[in-house]
Amino acid sequence: MSVGKKTPIQPALHKVIMVGSGGVGKSALTLQFMYDEFVEDYEPTKADSYRKKVVLDGEEVQIDILDTAGQEDYAAIRDNYFRSGEGFLCVFSITDDESFQATQEFREQILRVKNDDHIPFLLVGNKADLADKRRVTFEDAKQRSDQWNVPYVETSAKTRANVDKAFFDLARKISSRKYRSEAQEESSPKKSSCCIIL
């Protein structure tokens, strides 16, 4: 009997970090994405991690999500988990200008820690369902995202609008970036092995 074929090939793993001020809906977005549910009063945890298998463009991948409170006393505490992230959903609430302003600082810290201007990153304007309480215009947000050269997406964790899109778009970016770098990595050892043969 053949046992070997049983070993499942581990699917690619993409690590996503939720960042943004407290109360903008990071947990709500995560839970909606994970469990298809909207929790009105989810007790704010300092941090929790999630893992979900999804099929991304026909390929099964795992998405790891680190959802944090984003209210640490010292920004440096974030360094470590920012460092571990492969892509970021930088969330603000369109009903809260302060949360929009805060994205600037998060962006800078991520760039500094990751030391990578092309790190997969989405600017997410959440609570899009609360149109009558909007404080941040789409244009302002869009302008900022353009300036950062990242996509901007408006979501609603309540109606699930664009929730999957946000996560999938980010995962797709992470995936394609990995593929590119893998290709780069692979190209060099090939040459070296060639050399050895020669």
């Binding site: 941090a47 991690s49 680190l66 640490e72 006393d73 470590n80 571990s84």
Partner: peptide, 13 residues
């Protein structure tokens, strides 16, 4: 387990 960041974050604090 996927908890390293969660744990380390808590430990830092």
């Amino acid at each position: 387990g996927n908890l390293l960041q969660v744990v380390w974050r808590a430990m830092q604090e």
